[in-house]
Amino acid sequence: NIFRILGDLSHLASIVILLRTVQKTRQVDGISLKTQLLYVLVFCTRYLDLLTFRWKSVYNTLMKMVFIGASVRVIQLIQECKTRNAVAYKDMMARDTFQIKYLVGPCAILALVFNYKFTVLELCWSFSLWLESVAILPQLFMLSRSGKAGTLTTHYIFALGLYRALYIPNWIWRYYTEGRLEKLSVFTGLLQTALYSDFFYIYYKKVIKGAGFELP
């Protein structure tokens, strides 16, 4: 359906925006390495089914490979910045202070409690859903502490939030046309959207009222 396609495309757009900008400008200003590392973990644990070779469609398989590849490439580019622009890298690391163990640990426990089947594949899949829902927190934490967001960060988070928002009408659509209600995805998806709404609210206020950028 249209919501699903548009959602996936904005997800793809968010990563392309990030990749292209970092590649072109060699700037990682305002980007959280921790959030990016969490996304690599999210994609690798979610798309483990690629290894079973029970592929659903060309679209599905290709997108999964692109998401894994692009997220790893982002990390590579950030690491390249380490040698190229040591000062900017150090500055980024000094501000990227969120403790990700407080996200990974609880997500692992939630995956053990909420899953469809107690198998490695299903546990990893559930873990990836929980982790994705909170993976942006180090990034938002960084923004709230610096009090300002660059164009790159803003566009990136905007595209990511759009992807999340579009998945909601997609689920409603699928519920009515296919009778499908996948509770884990819906719940973690709503949780993730709620986190983004905070960003959107502040962004809206900043754009409309021209006030300084701040997150509660």
Partner: peptide, 10 residues
């Protein structure tokens, strides 16, 4: 139940 295990979303 089996349909839910398909995980066809990204």
């Amino acid at each position: 139940e089996d349909k839910l295990l398909e995980h066809d979303e990204l």
